[in-house]
Nucleic acid binder design. Structure first.
Lengths: 145, 145
DNA sequence: TTAATTCACACTAAATCACTCGGGATTAAT
DNA sequence: ATTAATCCCGAGTGATTTAGTGTGAATTAA
């Protein structure tokens, strides 16, 4: 039950952009340095985020990336689905196009994985980037207190 | 967020043994055929289950495998931890020995994955093989009705 | 014109996955 | 005592995925 670095880094990068939402575009290099991710690799990952409409790019000097919409309207689930594919502990309970399975009618393990899938999806869909910003703020205040 | 076949097949095999708990030992061949898993491969997997004390084996002719304890006392979480390792969407929130991370103090994405881990663990620990047997029973009755 | 940047695409070493295979050890049944 | 059924063990393997690197072209602000 692990995420690959795609999802892991993807969320980090999106959170970084959320922390600078509303300002100038952030160059990838900056995000990569701040989040400690290989720039070349992150370039590939953010291409996915751009193609699926989660971020927008500004080309040329002084360019960079910005969130495509308000942090309130982007959830962890959105990002993970884009970076890792549909939520599916096993193929036969994929959110989209569940794989055929010889015994799907009476397979009880399948229903366990469906519950796991739903629980994962519900949790990840309930956390927005804005929620994370608020948590970061709170943690920051507590650290200073 | 996928399980490998280790966890998937592991649970299937354990559920199969649960369905025959209290009778003679079940030969691996039978489990493999019923669950549609390669016998050679399942042999490897069940070795893990035996070494960690979830099943017991009876060697020799008429031998096979039996659950090491009551289905009520074995949870999906027990099986998945044995087959897939500690629950950990990302290494820095592993249930055991979380990997060091340069920014663990203030990393908000980390706290997201900790919540995901806890939610996964709570759900999987709450489902026992006995629960699954009851569900199977219920489904069976409904199918006949 | 230059420097900073995104964008596209090809490549790759290492790890993991999902097995197969061969053969030895143990034991019930005959 | 022999046979057949079974567990047990370790080695090997092809395919896929992972986590990158590298090269160079296109775009644009300064």
């Amino acid at each position: 039950m692990r995420l690959s670095t795609r999802g892991h880094y993807g969320l980090k990068a999106m959170f970084d952009l959320a922390q600078h939402y509303g300002t100038e575009p952030i160059p990838l290099k900056t995000v990569a340095e701040r989040q400690n991710i290989s720039e070349n690799y992150l370039e590939q990952l953010i291409a996915t985020l751009r193609k699926t409409g989660l971020v927008k790019s500004v080309r040329g000097s002084q360019g960079g990336y910005i969130l495509a919409r308000d942090p309130e309207k982007i959830t962890v689930g959105d990002i993970i689905r884009v970076m890792e594919g549909p939520i599916a502990p096993v193929d036969c309970v994929s959110e989209i196009e569940p794989a055929e399975c010889d015994q799907s009618d009476y397979c009880i393990t399948r229903s366990v994985w469906a519950r796991v899938r739903d629980s994962l999806a519900e949790l990840m869909d309930s956390i927005s980037l804005a929620d994370m910003l608020r948590d970061a703020d709170k943690a920051e205040r507590e650290r200073r207190a």
